[in-house]
Amino acid sequence: MSLLKSRETVLGLAILLLLALIYSRFPGFVRPASLARVLTDTSPLIILALGQMAVILTKCIDLSMAANLALCGMVAGLMNMAGVPLPLILLAVIALGAALGAFNGILVWKLNIPSIVVTLGTMTIYRGIIFLLTDGRWINAHQMSAGFKAFPRTVYLGLPVMTWIMIVIVAGFAVLIYRTPLGRAFFAVGGNPHAAVYTGISVGRTQFWAFTLAGALAGLTGYLWVARYSVAYVDIAAGFELDVVAACVIGGIAIAGGAGSVAGAVMGALFLGIVKNALPVVGISPFWQMAISGTAILVAIAFNARGQGQQGRIILKKAEQRE
């Protein structure tokens, strides 16, 4: 308990330290308005990190999330061009994203194929489908309706709708993870698959729901992404799946499954978001970002591994007292 808590505390301190460092070079970055912008900018990463967290908790990994996002974003753009009203588009992308996630989940559940193989495959398939849909053409800002583009940016109570959506999802996800049987099952399946079977939890079905959930979140984010940046093409969010995994790893979600927290995933994403937004501000080339997130992943794994510590039993009495 204390250990897991400390993991989040350490991450929180790391974020504060990072902000302090940036503050020393460029105080303006730490202004509330500027931080709010960082939060908004990081919202897609946070949402996807939650979905990825559910998948990783169940001992799987979803490398197709960014491709799913791109496909759903493109479909949202196409539907908008066809004049479909926004609420319907939202429903459609969530459903499509969930279906794409469910396809991953079915292969993992029913055919028992390792998730890394499945999602490496669907990652290219989903992106390829975008090409088939569009012949490689872009959807540009002028082809999108004003309402479509404006919705995520509409400011409400001081924050854009996109940020509010993220906050609602974080809250909802926390309730799901901590207060529903499915959420607890994610932990159970990843922590001890054998025991899960004996408690009446189906490992495969739980993994299926984790993938479906991750897919639905990726689908929704697809719309948000396309609307916010006002452009859709085959390669949007290319490589973003790695950022998502990185956010989870930095947030202390155990890659072996069964351990992690919502706060950790959110903070892991925020850490990367702050780095990304701060680099240009403090005058470092944005090309440093990739190396920095790679280093952050490695540091985080090393740190998490240390936390897991010794599993061996302690036999000697005096050693027991020393512990």
């Binding site: 890394i116 890659i255 990739m290 190396a291 920095i292 790679g294 992943i297 490695l298």
Partner: peptide, 18 residues
């Protein structure tokens, strides 16, 4: 160091290209 290869190499994937 006994770290899992999949995450290590996802990390170095970013680091090396970075």
């Amino acid at each position: 160091f006994g770290l899992p290869s999949i995450v290590v190499t996802i990390g170095t994937m970013s680091l090396f290209r970075g």
